[in-house]
Amino acid sequence: MTTRVGIVRFPGSCDERDAAYAVGLVGGEPQLLWHGDADLAGVDAVIVPGGFAYGDYLRAGALARFAPIMGAVAAFAGDGGPVLGICNGFQVLCEAGLLPGALTRNANLRFVHRWLPVRVEAHTPWSAGVQPGSVLSLPVKHGEGRYVHPQPHRLVEAGQVWLCYAQPDGSLDAAANPNGSTAAIAGVTNAAGNVTGLMPHPEHAVDPLLGGTDGPALLAPAAAATAPAG
């Protein structure tokens, strides 16, 4: 049976249709979830997509975490359900306390949109089948994507660093880091590993016509079939 993937639509979301398109392309069934609803309509996985929820005038994601749907997302995450936050969705999940750390303004204070290499650091349900050390080509597009965490080495030790900005050969250096993120971190997971967030956009890398096809590697639950009983 096709996996149903819920995609949360906040006021000001921009990439929800892109996420739905990507989910459909990899074989899942996308379902948009309304911010004002308090349940997830029985979906098998949740994506919190990119955009500018509530305008992000205060601090990216700071208002969205209070939306009624987020209570349901937190409960789903607590039960071990797979949750993925992309860009603004990553910011929302950090603000909601479902992921460690925070996203702040890019070091050069400019919005940045470019394709770049991203190295996979850890196994998560979202990247099942991708070996750590693999380098993927993905686009970033954000003004507030500088990941900060007071003790990044703790995250590394706990295996919670999911993705890093890297050179094409997988090596890490300052030139490969587009926004000044701590330890070049591009994506993290929670301690349990079922909640993940990243600044790059896998949903924009699913169609050869649109620049690349490495995105599906990070959308594994959408492609997975669920048990018929589910």
Binding site: C14, D15, R17, D18, Y21, A22, G50, R110, F111, V112, H113, R114, P139, K141, H201, E203, H204, D207, L209, L210, G211
Partner: peptide
Amino acid sequence: IAEQYDSAVGSATV
């Protein structure tokens, strides 16, 4: 200039 713009949203930009 182009890097400061989102040219990808909408998944239409071939």
